[in-house]
């Protein structure tokens, strides 16, 4: 009980911290662009206003952004009765309001929860998961997601997806226009020369920022968080073997790729939605503890 309460407080503080860091990063970028146009304060204030508004939007409708980004559709009780019953049952067990149910039409085995608090939460599963898992295994997976909701992990993870996501998008976009922009056409007028300089500066800043952002995403998930959700999920179902066997099935999934998952949303999922591959960028975003170890811990419970 006590531990749970601390986790909730922890996640709320981290969420505020993340929003402040976001406003700071965008503010600095705005100031840099401002300097190039000889107007630091204008750039800074526009950036701060933008990032404030965007954080608010992220906080209140991050859930919907993430759901539509991942191609999740609301699941009706008629079509998916056993998903519904499982979610309702585990919400009762956790003592929280019933989260909304969503499905992604994808053969990969995966699931995630998102929302800003237990009253505004949703659980999404892939249709592949529904087809493959037995009732007890599905209960294990939903129990894991339910404890993310109860702990307020979802708030912090949602904000990470939405806020870090846009920085990743911005840096991708700017770096690309910086790399390709120089090759196309003649740029000899004074105005476009200035823009190129600005883009170079911003691009460089973002190139430096990218690894830091990667670290932030890693922090957002942390092995501890997943292990905790496994353990408290098992407390909800009182049946650790259910989740253990679900995880075993997930680890044997030949095609773990969720089509619509991206770097910004990867950490939300119960297991990494990418193919097992190595590479600098992929490693930066490898956010999940190895499944084998999670299974081992569940079996020891």
């Amino acid at each position: 009980m006590r531990i749970m309460f601390n986790e909730v407080k922890n996640n709320k503080i981290k969420s505020v911290f993340l929003m402040l860091v976001f406003i700071l990063v965008i503010g600095v970028l705005g100031a840099i662009i401002g300097i190039f146009y000889d107007n630091l304060y204008f750039g800074l204030s526009i950036a701060v206003i933008f990032s404030l508004i965007y954080s608010m939007i992220g906080f209140y409708s991050g859930k919907n952004m993430i759901l539509s980004m991942s191609g999740a559709k609301p699941a009706t009780k008629k079509e998916y009765p056993h998903l519904y019953h499982t979610i309702e049952g585990l919400a009762i067990s956790a003592g929280i309001p019933t989260p909304q149910a969503y499905v992604i039409d994808d053969s990969a085995l995966n699931a995630f929860a998102t929302g800003r608090d237990p009253k505004n939460a949703s659980i999404t599963v892939t249709t592949g998961l529904l087809k493959t898992m037995s009732r007890q295994e599905l209960e294990g997976v939903i129990g894991h997601e339910m404890s993310h909701i109860k702990n307020y992990d979802i708030r912090f993870m949602m904000l990470t997806a939405v806020l870090v996501g846009i920085v990743v998008l911005l840096s991708d976009f700017l770096l690309r226009s910086f790399l390709w922009g120089g090759h196309g056409g003649k740029r000899d007028s004074k105005g476009s020369g200035q823009i190129t300089v600005v883009l170079i500066a911003v691009g460089l800043v973002l190139a430096i920022l990218a690894p830091i952002i990667g670290e932030l995403v890693k922090l957002a998930i942390s092995r501890k968080r997943e292990f905790m959700a496994d353990a408290s999920g098992a407390v909800l179902t009182r049946y650790p073997p259910g989740l253990a066997s679900a995880l075993r099935k997930i680890s044997k999934d030949p095609d773990p790729l969720v089509d619509k998952a991206n770097k910004a949303t990867a950490h939300l999922f119960i297991s990494t939605p990418f193919r097992k591959q190595t590479g600098f960028v992929t490693n930066l975003f490898l956010t999940h503890p190895p499944i084998e170890e999670r299974i081992k811990r569940l079996e020891a419970m």
Binding site: H85, G89, L236
Partner: peptide, 10 residues
Amino acid sequence: TGTENKIAYS
């Protein structure tokens, strides 16, 4: 079955 499970959970 769903209701039985919910009874157990509640």
